[in-house]
Amino acid sequence: MFIYVNGEIVKKEEAAISPFDHGFLYGMGLFETFRVYDGHPFLLDHHITRLNEGLKVLNIEKQFTREEVNNSLRVLLDANGLENAYIRLNVSAGIGEVGLQVEPYREPNVLIFAKPLPKAGEMAEKRAVILQLKRNTPEGLTRLKSHHYMNNLLAKREIGRSTDVEGIFLTAEDYIAEGIVSNIFWKKGNTVYTPSLATGILNGITRQFTMKAVKTLGLHMEEGLFSIEDVAAAEEIFVTNSIQEIVPIVEFEGHAMPGKSGELVQKLHQHYRESCNTLWSI
């Protein structure tokens, strides 16, 4: 398998960065994960926009364009013989002295990883459980998709190796926040609900796509502060992320849910299938 490192395609065993990279020393780095469908990087524009905004916050002097990223992806995918893939675009701050740096980072390290994925197909159902571990607050004003991932890793250890379970974080105030690697939605009546960004969650790209799709389907979309009881009373629950797409929930804290037989998730899944091979933007 090959990866992209600062403009070069190298074998993964030969890839290396300096131990003085502040992405390693202090977690000063960002990443985006997304899928490529038959050669098309779905919603790439929005992933780049979020990445560029985060780089400004971290004082890393690098901005990406669609053309630059897409060209790099094409070379990497060709090297690995892939048309359907999981992509991680990673930007770390680059080399600095040991100690906290105030000056801008001007030579970041850019790495792109690709893993093979099968063609998109049926929805995979999961059970949702409330985590004992609370969601940590963002390091800054808003949550970035950054190298600061210990909260997520500890939460994954809490639920174990099961691939059919998603852990759901609560805030310190016991409001529903988000999944370990997902955003959460639920439907009741003609309204679809999802936690507000005020809870400190990541504004997922698939979250944004889903909110627009819900409105396109003629349903109301409401963000807010919600309790476990609010979610348990739902007619349908699902979680979203850019790799697993729309994931129906079959059980929430012991409450049975319709899973992939739910009318809303079926419509959203169909909308996703019709969009994933062509859309650059939401």
Rank of each mutant, 00 (worst) to 15 (best):
I3E: 02
V5D: 00
V10E: 01
E13R: 07
H22C: 00
G23W: 03
F24H: 04
F24L: 11
L30R: 08
L30Y: 10
F31T: 08
Y37T: 12
P41H: 07
L43C: 04
D45K: 15
H46L: 15
H47P: 07
T49I: 05
R50P: 03
N52K: 10
G54N: 04
K56L: 13
K56D: 08
N59E: 10
E61G: 04
R66D: 08
S72A: 15
R74Y: 03
V75H: 12
A79C: 04
A79I: 05
A79M: 04
N84M: 00
Y86E: 02
S92Y: 01
G96R: 04
V98P: 14
Q101M: 04
P104Y: 10
P108M: 08
N109T: 06
N109Y: 04
V110S: 05
K115P: 03
M123N: 02
A128T: 15
V129E: 13
V129R: 11
I130E: 14
I130M: 11
I130A: 10
R135L: 07
G140A: 05
L144K: 04
H147D: 09
H147V: 05
L153S: 01
L153T: 09
E158P: 07
R161E: 06
D164T: 14
D164S: 12
E166I: 11
F169C: 13
L170P: 09
Y175E: 09
I176L: 14
I180T: 15
I184G: 10
F185E: 11
K187I: 13
N190Q: 13
Y193F: 14
L202T: 12
N203I: 00
N203R: 05
G204W: 10
T206Y: 06
T206E: 08
R207G: 09
Q208C: 00
T210D: 04
M211A: 10
M211T: 12
A213G: 07
V214K: 14
K215M: 14
T216Q: 14
L217G: 11
L219R: 00
H220W: 00
F226I: 00
E229A: 13
E229Q: 07
V231K: 00
A233Q: 04
A234S: 06
E235A: 02
E235H: 08
E235I: 00
I237V: 09
I237W: 07
F238Q: 06
F238H: 03
T240V: 05
Q244L: 11
Q244N: 09
Q244I: 07
E245W: 02
P248Q: 05
F252T: 11
L264A: 02
Q266H: 05
H271E: 02
C276H: 10
N277Q: 09
L279A: 12
W280A: 11
S281A: 14
